[in-house]
Every structure is written in C-alpha cells, then in structure tokens.
C-alpha cells in the first residue's frame, strides 16, 4: 500500500494526496493506492499540482494499517506524519489532539 506526499510550497507543511486529488493535512485522510497504475496516476496528479506551485517534493510512501489506522512504514515518514517526537505540542500530532 502506498500514499503520495509532498510539502506545501508556501509554508512547507506536510500534505498527502487525498480523494479527488486534493491535498490533505492528516495522513488518515490520504488516498490509499494499490498497484502500479494507481501510484503512477497519483504521482502524476501530485506533479501537476507542483507545476501549479501548490507543493514541492512529491513522492510516494509505503504505508500499512495498524489497528485500522493508516501508518507509514518508515520512521522518517511516521515523524513527518506526526511532528517532532521531542515536541508533542507541535506539528500534526498537536492538530490531531485538538480535533
């Protein structure tokens, strides 16, 4: 399983490609991709968005499901999805706990 991620151009905020090729701010809302064609299509949509100057650094990320939740496989991506492990009050993890 894969998802597509990027950073927003204007402020660097981490985003993932969600339904309807819209960028979303929580990994849980990312569109899960199975199979090469889906990934290629999502990457193409991401790159087109980069062309429109919405995001930079578009790439794919491996994910798994843990307790029904979408979790990136690599630690780097886990940290991007949450925020610095040293600052629980900052980044996505803070937004998630407020929500």
């Amino acid at each position: 399983m894969k998802i597509v991620t990027a950073n927003r151009l204007i402020d660097g905020e981490v985003v993932w490609l969600g339904a309807g090729n819209a960028w979303v701010g929580q990994v849980s809302e990312a569109l899960v991709l199975d199979g090469k064609d889906d990934v290629a299509a999502a990457l193409a949509a991401g790159l087109a968005s980069a062309e429109r100057r919405e995001v930079v650094d578009v790439y794919e990320v491996d994910v798994t499901e843990e307790d029904g939740k979408l979790v990136p496989v690599r630690l780097r991506e886990k940290i991007r999805a949450k925020g610095p492990t040293t600052h629980p009050e900052l980044g996505k993890q803070a937004q998630a706990s407020q929500a």
């Binding site: 950073n7 402020d11 660097g12 905020e13 981490v14 930079v56 650094d57 780097r76 940290i79 991007r80 925020g83 610095p84 900052l90 980044g91």
Partner: peptide, 17 residues
Amino acid sequence: FKPLRLMNGLYLQLHAY
C-alpha cells in the same frame, strides 16, 4: 529557486522550512 533559497539559508526539512 532552490539554489537561491539555499544561498539565503532557507532549507526545506521534514515538517517545514
């Protein structure tokens, strides 16, 4: 743009610039 922003000390890191 990237080399220009780097010349001004601005990097893109994991969560932000």
